[in-house]
Design a protein around this nucleic acid. Structure first.
Lengths: 121, 121
DNA sequence: CCTACGCCTGCAAATACTTGCAGACGTAGA
DNA sequence: TCTACGTCTGCAAGTATTTGCAGGCGTAGG
């Protein structure tokens, strides 16, 4: 297979990996600090096993890395810049959305880009 | 549903949309010029109907736009910057790949970012 | 009008992803 | 050592994507 097709396939795999709302929210949370599985699950209102399964996928592709401390497994982003890359995709949402208004998108972007912002949204 | 979750879902949809090797290669081709369905199919060595199906998906999400001329349907990127955003994802591939070497990735990036580059790869 | 071309859509089978649940494994504390 | 906790993994059912193929629709040319 020509290398261009290989590269396209690898790129597709990365996109597929991120293409899940839970995983996007997990990366969003991890952009600031590390979390153990349960804290992340609580924060996102998801079951522990579900979060663990997503993390295992992200771990397999080295999007996140693990640090163990006793019975806790703490996770952090291998390359924190990935969070900013994801937010950059918001540009391609704007102006053509059913359920999300422009102001909601802008406030989401602000949240992802600025740690000081209000996080209650 | 809180807006943050809505935004995560919409982002996930965009990622899902792009997460296919064929569609990535199509966007890559379309970054420079418009193509009609058959030319694109020939260029990428894919069947016409397959390309048409991918295009219909991209069209539905306004990643591409159509221009008709007789029986030909010409497609172009709605927001050409999307191609650059996709290439930016290459950063998260490097250094952890099975089938693709660093030099192949670099040459792929060069191709996407520079129209003058050799395209035989 | 008839035919060929270019493209689109519907359908059905194959494949892949997601999810909850049950059980396993290691660690900490009594 | 026994128990509880935190996390991981396997499995099976449900859901979504991908693909090829057959047929449809519009346009150009004879």
């Amino acid at each position: 297979m020509p290398s261009r097709q290989l590269v396209a396939k690898e790129l597709a795999d990365i996109f597929k990996l991120i293409a899940h709302p839970d995983r996007i929210r997990m990366i969003e949370e991890l952009r600031k600090q590390e979390y153990d599985v349960n804290s992340l699950a609580t924060q996102l209102e998801l079951s522990g096993s579900r979060v663990s399964q997503h993390l295992s996928l992200l771990r397999a592709h080295r999007i996140v890395e693990e640090r163990r401390d006793g019975r806790h497994h703490f996770y952090h982003l291998t390359q924190p810049e990935i969070a900013q890359w994801i937010v950059a995709g918001l540009v391609f949402i704007e102006g053509r959305l059913s359920g999300v208004s422009t102001s909601e998108i802008q406030s989401a972007r602000a949240l992802w880009l600025d740690n000081q912002a209000d996080e209650t949204g």
